[in-house]
């Protein structure tokens, strides 16, 4: 993509939404030479409650740091999808976990379904790395960052000792079977 790209990642607390946002921003900014701004909001609970990360990627300097009309929405819970779908711009990409979300009608956007949590659980035995699977899906479907940049960011940012499983999760997501639903 060219120009300013707005990405929103949303889900429940504990799903690693914020870390996914940080890694995406770091991949773009540090490892791919673009500019990126990452911000977040989360409820008072560190588990449960709504959680949201926003990333803006641009070749140019980024002024307004908030997402207005996302080009990409990654929704990891039904609540997040229902809440943020209306903001997604026409032609934007909506990525959902097909086992956790019943997608509503999604006119004028590309709806991408992938078995995000299932892959993490079945292939890696760790549902907690679903966020990295999701990032892999996001990278391939949206093209906003390269897999290589994401790999570097994961290796750098993942909690010590978890780099390997997170990298595998990323690859898994990048090569995941995705389904584009059109209405």
């Amino acid at each position: 993509m060219k120009g300013r790209v707005e990405i929103r990642i949303a889900g429940e607390g504990g799903q690693g939404v914020i870390l996914a946002g940080i890694i995406l921003a770091e991949a773009a900014a540090v490892w791919q030479g673009l500019n990126a701004t990452q911000s977040q909001s989360y409820g008072p609970e560190s588990r449960g409650g709504a959680s949201r990360a926003e990333v803006i990627i641009d070749e140019e300097e980024i002024d307004y740091p908030r997402v207005r009309q996302p080009h990409v929405l990654l929704a990891l819970s039904q609540e997040a999808l229902d809440k943020y779908l209306p903001d997604v711009r026409d032609g934007g990409v909506v990525i959902v976990d097909q086992d956790r979300v019943v997608p509503p009608a999604c006119p004028r956007r590309r709806l991408i379904e992938a078995p995000i949590t299932r892959l993490a659980r079945e292939k890696l035995g760790r549902a907690i790395v679903a966020n990295m699977v999701a990032l892999g899906v996001l990278a391939r479907v949206s093209g906003v960052v390269t897999l290589e940049a994401l790999r570097s960011a994961v290796a750098h940012r993942a909690p010590s000792g978890t780099e390997e499983v997170n990298l595998r999760a990323l690859e898994l997501g990048y090569h995941a079977p995705v389904r584009e639903v059109s209405d």
């Binding site: 921003a25 900014a29 701004t37 990452q38 911000s39 740091p65």
Partner: peptide
């Protein structure tokens, strides 16, 4: 708070 919690390169 915006600037304090924002991440940038």
């Amino acid at each position: 708070e915006v600037v304090a919690h924002m991440r940038e390169k």
